[in-house]
Each structure stands twice: as structure tokens, then as C-alpha cells.
């Protein structure tokens, strides 16, 4: 009993420590500017206000950045998941020379720090005439999200019994038909985890966005907000906090929507032995 209480206390301490900055972010974004620097600081705002949100939406480019981020993250996720699913299928189901080395080579690219890759990548994109566009970021993000996604999906794919696919083939399905009817539904939890991972990664990415894009029309939220609110002389704390809250909302929504799929429908029980 005492052990349980101690354990709960411990767990809650960690949860609160992790969650406190988030609470503080929300509270700060709802305080008027003059209350921010008061000593001692107030915990709950004395006057509640949403003026920072309104300012962001009405008189800054926040919505443009937001739109860019949504397009960027969604496209990257779709591209990465599509390629990784097909790639993982190939790595798991087909036997060909160099299959294992290929898989390790892919992982190896993931081990290189982005800073090393960013200059050559930038030069390549400039030469392709793609610099300063959302597409350039989609390509850049794919290079680092794909290897991990491939490995993640590969392990999910390896967990799907080959007999299921064989059964579908004998039952008259084509390879593609078996993939669609049997493999994809089984892979769904894996695909969703991978999609979630890729989406969060591209939503929060900063370094590539900073180097590869410097026009406001293509900037995503991360660099856009920093560029807009953080200057050498001043940081707009209230607006920054409001922007941070609004940046977190899509992730929370996506997560809340998909996490039920993550645990649902794991293909247990179809195959015995």
C-alpha cells in the first residue's frame, strides 16, 4: 500500500514537472502584457485576455505560416508513409541480393547529423531550382524522416505472418490485391504510428526551415514565428506564448484522433501457433 502511494506520488511529480511549462505557456498567453514581468509573478492572470491571439491572427502573417506548416507536414507525411510502406514490404517479403545491406545503408543515413547534410542539400536544391519553396522542405524532411519510418514499418511488416498473404494469393488475389486486402489493414497501427512520428517531426523542424527557406510566403511556423517575434532588441513574450499554444493545438488534435487507432485493431488472433 505504501509502496503504491509512493509510486503514484513519484509518477505524478514527473507528470507535473513535464506539464508545468505547458501550463505556464497557456497562462502567460492569457495574461495582459503588463502582468508578465510583475514581481512576485502571479500564477493565475488577474485579468484574462485573448488580445494576443487576436493580434496574431489579424495583424501578423501567422495564418500564412500556419497554412505553410500544414501543407508541409501533411505532404511530407504522405510521401514518407507511402514510400516507407512499399519499401518495408519489399525489404521484408522479397529476397534479393544486398537486401540487408540496403536496409543498414538506409539506417546509416539517419545516423549522420543534419548539420553535416544541410549544406550539400542546400546546394543541390538551389541547382535544381527548388530553393525557397515548400517543396524543398518536403524533400529535405523526407531525407531524414524516411529512414526511420522505413525501419519502423519494417518491424511492423515483419510481424505480419506471411501465411496471411499466401492465403490471399491462393484465394485468388493478385499480389497488389493481397497487399491491399490483407497487408494494409494489418499494417494500419504501424502506418499510424509512423505517420504520427513523421508529422510531429516535420511540424517541429527548425534547422532545415531556417537554412532552406527565407521568404515569408514559404516559411513554416517554427521559423516564421521566431522571425516575426524575436528580434535582437525585443522578444514579444505574450505573442510568442499565444503562437506556441496555437502551434501545439494541431498536434494535440492529431494525436487525440489517432491514438485510439494506435491501440485498436492489432491483428491478434488471426493466426495461431
Amino acid at each position: 500500500m505504501i509502496r503504491r502511494i509512493a509510486f503514484n506520488l513519484f509518477a505524478w511529480t514527473i507528470v507535473l514537472a513535464v506539464a508545468f511549462p505547458l501550463f505556464w505557456m497557456v497562462l502567460t498567453s492569457l495574461k495582459p502584457q503588463f502582468e508578465l514581468f510583475r514581481r512576485p509573478p502571479t500564477f493565475l492572470p488577474e485579468t484574462w485576455t485573448v488580445e494576443h491571439y487576436w493580434t496574431l491572427l489579424s495583424s501578423t502573417k501567422f495564418l500564412t505560416y500556419f497554412k505553410n506548416s500544414v501543407i508541409l507536414s501533411t505532404t511530407t507525411t504522405l510521401v514518407v508513409v507511402a514510400i516507407a510502406t512499399i519499401g518495408a514490404y519489399s525489404l521484408v517479403r522479397f529476397r534479393y541480393r544486398g537486401r540487408e545491406s540496403l536496409a543498414f545503408l538506409v539506417l546509416f543515413t539517419y545516423l549522420l547529423p543534419s548539420v553535416v547534410l544541410i549544406i550539400p542539400l542546400y546546394l543541390m536544391l538551389v541547382q535544381l531550382g527548388l530553393s525557397n519553396s515548400i517543396l524543398s522542405l518536403v524533400i529535405a524532411y523526407t531525407t531524414f524522416a524516411l529512414p526511420y519510418a522505413l525501419w519502423l514499418l519494417r518491424s511492423f511488416m515483419a510481424g505480419i505472418p506471411e501465411d496471411l498473404e499466401s492465403a490471399a494469393l491462393v484465394d485468388g488475389a493478385s499480389r497488389l490485391g493481397a497487399f491491399r486486402d490483407v497487408i494494409l489493414p494489418q499494417l494500419l497501427p504501424g502506418i499510424i504510428s509512423t505517420a504520427l512520428f513523421t508529422f510531429i517531426l516535420s511540424w517541429n523542424e527548425y534547422l532545415y526551415a531556417l537554412v532552406l527557406v527565407n521568404s515569408d510566403s514559404a516559411r513554416p511556423l517554427t521559423t516564421g514565428v521566431m522571425n516575426m517575434l524575436v528580434s535582437s532588441f525585443n522578444i514579444e513574450w505574450s505573442l510568442l506564448m499565444a503562437a506556441s499554444v496555437m502551434m501545439s493545438v494541431p498536434l494535440i488534435i492529431v494525436f487525440a484522433f489517432l491514438q485510439s487507432y494506435l491501440t485498436r485493431g492489432f491483428g491478434a488472433g488471426g493466426v495461431k501457433g
Binding site: A167, V170, Q186, A268, G270
Partner: peptide, 20 residues
Amino acid sequence: VAPGERDIAMVFQSYALYPH
């Protein structure tokens, strides 16, 4: 000839029922 066109049916040791 592809498995589906051989006019055969197969029962697998693992049963291989489609779980979904």
C-alpha cells in the same frame, strides 16, 4: 500459373484467417 488461377484451395497450419 499464379496461385489464384490454379483452381486449388489451401488450409494453412496457422489457419491464416484474415484477422480484420
